[in-house]
Amino acid sequence: MTEMPPLHDYIDPEILIKLAEQDTAGDCQVTFQFVDHQITVTQDVQVFIDGKLNRQTLP
């Protein structure tokens, strides 16, 4: 398995916290590149990797 760099090298974790705190109708999202993948996290905590839904909620 290939060693992955720390995620915080690619995005400030505070951005994701602020996204979750937004008082909007779920239309906010953050998209960023991580290694060779495009990651999108929506305000309602859906996680997309390369456009494919990977996780709908956090544990």
Rank of each mutant, 00 (worst) to 15 (best):
M1L: 13
T2D: 15
T2C: 10
T2R: 15
E3H: 09
E3M: 11
M4S: 12
M4P: 10
M4Y: 15
P5A: 12
L7K: 10
H8N: 15
D9S: 14
D9Y: 04
I11D: 00
I11C: 06
D12T: 00
P13R: 02
L16F: 10
I17N: 09
I17M: 10
I17G: 07
K18C: 06
L19W: 03
L19F: 05
L19Y: 00
L19Q: 00
A20T: 10
E21I: 01
E21H: 04
Q22F: 06
D23S: 10
T24P: 04
T24Q: 09
G26P: 13
D27T: 12
D27N: 14
C28A: 14
C28Y: 07
Q29P: 00
Q29R: 12
V30L: 02
T31D: 00
T31Y: 04
F32W: 09
Q33K: 08
D36C: 04
D36G: 04
Q38W: 00
I39L: 12
I39G: 04
T40Y: 03
T40L: 01
T40C: 08
V41H: 05
V41S: 03
T42H: 03
Q43I: 02
D44K: 13
D44Y: 09
V45W: 06
V45G: 03
Q46C: 14
V47W: 03
V47R: 02
F48I: 10
F48R: 05
I49W: 03
D50L: 01
G51K: 05
G51C: 02
G51V: 02
L53N: 04
N54C: 08
R55A: 15
Q56Y: 08
Q56F: 10
T57G: 08
T57I: 12
L58E: 11
L58S: 11
P59G: 12
P59Y: 08
P59L: 14
